[in-house]
């Protein structure tokens, strides 16, 4: 078990070192979402008076789209250099490979969400930081990077992988997006969400179901 954790950390820290050198993924996510946030800021007549509903929508729409673009980049590199195959040749259980990619994407998403929230609070003069969004971020990131890893590896083997990944990923994670938006809205408006517990259980349920099912199916998409 201890050995497994060590392997997991070895693979993920390797991803982080590559990212620190190339800065490709975090820069892609952050710049893309900054663009989305600034489009809304430029086009709304009074950005500091934005309704909580639209604000939450802006934050998560930009995270979802920039995240899926960055993910397709992440996995298309692995496919081009055949480095995923290199890890598959190593004595590492296949589930651990899946978990290590989830962990790496989880970290990338968290970093860029912090930057997006910072940008949002400056542009729209509001403070989205609340207990709500702090609960949302880990649950959303876990589910999003789990489904993203699965479909990222699938679409990296095909033509136009950016489009394919977004098309596959977004409809599947819609429940998570609804969960994240609803709770962020409650945080932005300061009005307690009446369905807080229901949403929370939905988010956790989504994570558990997809983590279990996709781990089980992961081996089937890998071997050819």
């Amino acid at each position: 078990m201890k050995n497994w954790v060590k392997i997991l950390l070895t693979i993920s820290s390797k991803d982080l070192i590559i990212e620190l050198k190339s800065k490709e993924i975090i820069v892609t996510i952050t710049l893309f979402s900054l663009l989305v946030v600034s489009i809304f800021s430029v086009t709304s007549s009074n950005p500091s008076n934005l309704s909580a509903e639209i604000g939450a929508g802006i934050i998560w729409a930009s995270v979802v789209f920039s995240g899926s673009i960055a993910m397709s980049k992440f996995f298309s590199h692995e496919e081009k250099d055949e480095t995923l195959n290199a890890i598959l040749l190593m004595p590492v259980p296949i589930e651990l490979i899946f978990f290590s990619k989830i962990l790496s994407l989880f970290i990338f998403l968290t970093i860029s969400e912090c930057l997006i929230i910072g940008a949002f609070s400056i542009f729209f003069n509001s403070n989205p930081l609340s207990i709500y969004i702090l609960t949302v971020i880990p649950i959303f990131n876990l589910g999003f990077s789990c489904v993203g890893t699965f479909f990222g590896i699938i679409s990296s083997k095909s033509r136009s992988n950016e489009i394919l990944l977004t098309l596959l990923l977004v409809p599947i994670v819609i429940p998570l997006i609804m969960f994240a938006t609803e709770l962020t809205k409650a945080g932005l408006s300061g009005i307690h969400s009446p369905n807080f517990n229901l949403w929370l259980s939905l988010g956790i349920l989504f994570d558990i179901i997809f983590l279990v099912v996709l781990t089980f199916l992961f081996g089937k998409i890998i071997d050819q």
């Binding site: 392997i7 070895t10 693979i11 390797k14 070192i17 590559i18 050198k21 190339s22 250099d81 055949e82 480095t83 195959n85 290199a86 890890i87 040749l89 190593m90 004595p91 590492v92």
Partner: peptide
Amino acid sequence: VLMHSNMLYPQLTLKENLLFFSKLL
């Protein structure tokens, strides 16, 4: 195994690559 492709991380140095794979092995 050495296949048609070298299967190394282009952004990492040779040492980092080899250390990474020997840790996994």
